[in-house]
């Protein structure tokens, strides 16, 4: 089937790394093991029938209470074939790191910093993994589900929690 060519090719090439795949509402999604993430992304970018040249979005979802707790979500787009795919990888709270993909797509640089800032995921091999939206003295990661929405950490002024 044309729509699932990406998933089929991924399954054929990385059979044991693909944990799960679905196409809910037409969005092709593959959940992969984080160990082979870099190989999968290089394959997706360079394969002649895929050519996913855009790294559109990178984010994290916090499934608090599940194990593994986090899912790092990548949205890729192929200009040549006008196709989208979503790649997800699961990260546990105790070992909260994945490989950085800055070497594959430079656009991932800030997206990974943002994910580190707001969720605390460590991207191994990132050239400058530091806070981007918040300030350095901020403690914790505010988009984690266990961070209270009104827990303020002012740099100056009263702390009216």
């Amino acid at each position: 089937m044309e729509a699932n060519i990406t998933i089929n090719k991924l399954k054929a090439r990385f059979a044991e790394s693909i944990v799960d795949a679905h196409s809910y509402r037409g969005d092709d999604t593959a959940i992969v093991k984080k160990e082979e993430l870099l190989d999968i992304f290089i394959f997706l970018r360079d394969d002649k029938e895929l050519l996913y040249n855009f790294m559109m979005d990178l984010t994290v979802v916090d499934y608090l209470g599940k194990e593994p707790r986090f899912e790092v979500v990548y949205h890729l787009y192929s200009l040549a074939y006008n196709r989208r795919v979503r790649i997800k990888t699961r990260v546990s709270e105790s070992e909260c790191s994945v490989d950085s993909i800055v070497s594959i797509w430079p656009s991932a640089n800030w997206f990974e910093r943002e994910a580190f800032d707001l969720y605390g995921i460590v991207f191994k091999g990132h050239p400058n993994l530091s806070r981007i939206l918040l300030y350095d003295s901020f403690q914790g990661h505010p988009l984690r589900k266990d961070y209270p929405i009104k827990k303020r950490q002012p740099q100056i002024g009263p702390n009216n929690n």
């Binding site: 707001l118 806070r131 981007i132 939206l133 918040l134 300030y135 505010p142 988009l143 961070y147 929405i149």
Partner: peptide, 11 residues
């Protein structure tokens, strides 16, 4: 950047 981070997703 981040001087206008207003916690959109949290809201």
């Amino acid at each position: 950047i981040g001087f206008l981070h207003r916690g959109f997703e949290k809201m």
